[in-house]
Amino acid sequence: MKYGSSALLLALFLALAIAGPAVAPYNPLAYALADRLQPPSLHHWFGTDALGRDVFSRTLAAARTDLPAAAAAVILSSLIGVSVGAACGYLGGAIDRWVGRVVDVMMAFPLFVVAVALVAALGNSLTNVVLATAVINLPFYIRLVRAEIAARRQLGYVMAARLAGCGHGYIIGRVLIPNIAPIIAVQISLNLGWAVLNTSGLSFIGLGVRPPTPEWGALVSDGAQYLLTGQWWVALGPSLVLVLAVFAFTLIGDTAHDLFSPRSAR
């Protein structure tokens, strides 16, 4: 049940991102002032916005912004985080202590605020939103991988690899990391959901994408102005899809956790 639904949701979102524009009923950028602020109907499933654009088409198109941005952020932070965490966990010593302190300091701030500050400092662009999202997720990878590697570096099979003449690079890259790959995979899939939320959160407060580019957070923020005047649909459609996306990735992470951890698998 859980495995099936998480696979289904993942497939759905991938299909949305890939085939989105082809199946979208309207051009997400085309104004139709005559059709402004139409409630949901058979023609406009999610209704239209103040400029008469089809909210459903815009939500579909936004998947092409949010999902790649989240994926890029996750790939970036996992690559750097795993390398740094592995080095700290394996080598220990001064490097480990210093990295640990930096990570602790980062974690002491509310991470969303750190991301806002980073985008503000680096410049308001989608690339910098991705970078900021990657940076605030780094501590989680570093901590996780550091702990897992440190717990394994004295194990028999690592000792055996040393006896077999394997250098430290080989032991980290070919022995230790492959053995914790399932744990990293779980972290990555859980992290995708947070990254989507973070990207759209930054856009919601006006960072990252510029209008009229469709993006979930920006769409929700657009629609939020009309909630008070009774046009609830402008925000509702994108919000639901955003919730579903985060839910899907969390579910996938949870499924991955079940599949990879032997204790809960039975």
Binding site: L155, G156, Y157, M159, A160, A161, L163, A164, G165, C166, Y170, V175, P178, N179
Partner: peptide, 29 residues
Amino acid sequence: IQMVFQDAGGAFDPRLSISDSVALPLRRL
């Protein structure tokens, strides 16, 4: 100079077959 460990199970990489593990020192050294 080689060594045999007490916990034989823990001294093998769980991902590798026995012959791959035995091959490792021969390949590297």
